[in-house]
Amino acid sequence: MVYRRALLQKSAFLLLGIMPLAGALLYALGYSLGLLGALGQGFTLRHWARLLQDDAFWRALLLSSLMAVSVCALSAFMALRLLPRLMPWWEKKRWRPIFYLPLALPPLVAAVLSLQFLGNSGMLARLATALGMDAAHFPALTNDPAQLGLGFTLLMLTFPFTLLVMLNHYKSAQLSELSDLAATLGASPAQIRRKLWAPVLLRRAAPTLLLSAVFMFGAFEAPLLLGRQYPAMISVYINQKFSRFNLDDVPLAYTATVVYALLLLSALAFFLHHQKQEKS
């Protein structure tokens, strides 16, 4: 009875957890090698060669990586800087829901909000006009070449979560008591922040920050609404290739999916290795 149940439990995981993923990846790999799909005419590396020569693909990878790293680094920096000023409010239970409020915001709605605020006829442009600025001179902040609107939106999606993680770790690491001790021993507030809080909190929050970076790397809704078509972030790039009428783009989309999966696998392997080392 127990063995039968254990077998059923593993089968359920195999069927719903492993098989769809393995099926999707194997199909993508087969398609990318010309072995599967409507366009498959036998083994070929043509699609891989085309993808590796595609400037848009490399730019998408670069943009996604830069965006993921810079957004996570900036949100960690902001959380560390604001922590001492916000801690007294976090400790008062009645104010705590405020800190959780952004978690109730779906990414798509956050992207729509940025569009309504940063667009050419958005709230910021209206404010600038009310202050006497010529609307024609208001800088483009959505779908802009520097991807500022997109970066800002991703930062606003990541920062509240990073702040919550840091606030929780601050308490569990007993940093309040350690800070008092450091101050008694003559450390200045800046030294306490730099030499005590930053190393302890960044080390503890590292797995969460890495996972956040992985999520940001594959972000879709905000780049779709606020980013540019070229260069696009990797999710949007792959979605474009899948959705175009040009059938010759479909193998490229599957090949890019395989590359994305390999990159994700490397990041996860690094994350799990780090977790294992921490535990040991």
Binding site: G17, L211, V214, F215, G218, F220, S235, N239, Y260, A267
Partner: peptide
Amino acid sequence: PYAFSPVI
């Protein structure tokens, strides 16, 4: 799948 971009 937890970390994979849902759209991809």
